[in-house]
Computed example of a mutant assay.
Amino acid sequence: MVVKIIVSTDKRAVKEENGDFGFILWEILIVVFLMGIILTLATPHFGSATNQVWIRIDSANRARIEGAVQLYRIDVGVYPLSVTDLVRAPNGMSEWAGPYLDEIPINPFDNAQVYQIGTMGQVK
């Protein structure tokens, strides 16, 4: 007859000898909870990166349009009325040497909103 002496009172150590060792529900819940906290802290950083890209695209579009507006003014003598005048020649415009833009830039924040040109050539 063999007598086993159990020194540890840990239930997992006893189960290990029986071959039923596994994770306790509390351990799994703690790991899931910690993963949730980490994801919650990391998620806002990804959203702000997208917003920063949109801001940079908008700034680049504005600079590109304003540069094209200045070239238009040098050729024609007046500022264009809209961004489409930079892509296609307005009716009756003989001094137009464009196109000054290949295509009309799309606003990254709102695709339906078109860039407007002010009276002094700045983009609104």
Rank of each mutant, 00 (worst) to 15 (best):
S59H: 07
L86N: 05
E103H: 11
K11E: 12
I38W: 02
D75N: 10
Y79G: 15
Q116D: 11
L86Y: 04
W26R: 11
N111F: 14
E27Y: 07
I38K: 01
S82F: 03
G36S: 09
A63N: 06
L101A: 06
N91Q: 14
L29W: 03
S48F: 08
V114A: 15
Y100D: 08
W96G: 04
P99Y: 04
R64S: 15
V87T: 09
V69W: 05
V3E: 12
K4M: 14
N61P: 03
A63V: 13
S59W: 02
T50Q: 04
V32P: 06
I38S: 05
D85A: 10
L29E: 03
G47F: 15
T9Q: 12
L71C: 13
W54P: 01
L25I: 13
H45G: 10
A68H: 00
I30N: 01
V53C: 00
V2A: 14
V53W: 07
G77W: 00
V3T: 15
V31M: 04
M93C: 15
Y115W: 08
P105C: 08
G67T: 08
V76E: 05
N51T: 14
S59V: 05
L86V: 09
T40H: 06
S82D: 10
I65K: 00
P105M: 07
W96E: 02
V3R: 10
Y115N: 09
S59R: 12
L81F: 12
I106F: 00
E17I: 11
G36E: 02
T9K: 12
E16T: 11
V69H: 03
G92P: 09
A60M: 03
V69S: 04
Q122L: 14
I24F: 12
G22C: 07
A89Y: 01
G121A: 03
R62E: 08
Q52N: 11
P105V: 14
N91R: 08
